[in-house]
């Protein structure tokens, strides 16, 4: 059976701050290498709800402050309902860098303005102004949720990447964290958690090309998307991920993480 996948990429113009497109490149290539036909659907200000419904997987990156205001206005007015519906149905998603800030109940900016979020996740994000230092650096987490395991790639519980955020996120009762922080700040530098998982949607502060060094998460997203689309498990062909894991393990070693 020839299978295909459509990746919905939220606002490629407005939300692509620092290598964020790496996640889309990574998913696309990992599909192509397996002969899965793949289409990229850029979701822009003028993309209709009907078009968005064609996506089997949703990806979002970070935005600069100016762009973030435009994005949140458009999301709330035109796209929130359809995205929520899709996520409830199990469509997977990955939101990195600044985009998780848009998905909670609200995001309070440095000057105290409260931007209403989409309430997809039960969390809130606050920016305490420029006097509180940003959370910047290489980071490692240990995944807490066993549902994120994949069978087709060498599975590791660790995730590695780089975080750079001014906002601090606090999880509510109805959401699970994505990982436990081993090195770095995580959601807020206080409670030791990183990101959040709701249904099949992952939000995390790891920014930029998160998936390249975490091929297990990339494949989990692809197989979830296939499972929902074709309503059955489709075994993914294993790929040679030697280089991906070398890059992953290099970060573990650099940050003295031993598991």
């Amino acid at each position: 059976m020839r299978v295909s996948l459509t990746i919905g990429w939220l606002y490629p113009d407005l939300m692509s701050t620092y290598g964020d497109r790496g996640n889309v490149i990574c998913l696309k290539k990992r599909c192509l290498w397996r002969d899965i036909t793949v289409g990229i659907l850029p979701i822009n200000l003028d993309t209709s709800r009907k078009e968005i419904l064609n996506s089997d997987l949703i990806i979002g990156g970070g935005a600069q402050d100016r762009q973030q205001t435009i994005v949140i206005k458009d999301l709330t007015a035109n796209k929130a309902t359809v995205l929520k519906k899709m996520f409830k149905r199990g469509i997977p998603g990955l939101f990195v860098c600044g985009s998780p800030q848009l998905l909670g109940h609200y995001y309070m900016t440095g000057d105290g303005t409260r931007l209403k979020g989409l309430s997809i996740f039960d969390f809130v994000t606050k920016h305490f102004g420029h006097n509180k230092p940003r959370c910047i650096g290489n980071t490692v987490g240990e995944m807490l949720n066993s549902k994120l395991e994949t069978r087709n790639s060498k599975f590791k519980k660790t995730i590695v990447g780089f975080e750079n955020h001014g906002g601090r996120t606090y999880l509510g009762k109805n959401v699970e964290p994505f990982a436990k922080v081993l090195v770095g700040y995580g959601n807020n530098g206080e409670d030791g958690f990183e990101g959040a998982v709701f249904q099949n949607v992952i939000a995390c502060y790891y920014h930029g090309p998160f998936l390249a060094k975490n091929p297990h998460i990339a494949d989990w997203l692809i197989s979830k998307a296939m499972e929902i689309k074709y309503t059955k498990m489709i075994e993914l062909e294993p790929l040679d991920d030697t280089l991906e894991w070398q890059a992953h393990d290099y970060i573990l070693k650099k940050l003295n993480v031993r598991l």
Binding site: G19, N164, G208, P209
Partner: peptide
């Protein structure tokens, strides 16, 4: 310290 830029 962040090498993410190579993806751009």
């Amino acid at each position: 310290r962040d090498v993410s830029w190579i993806w751009d």
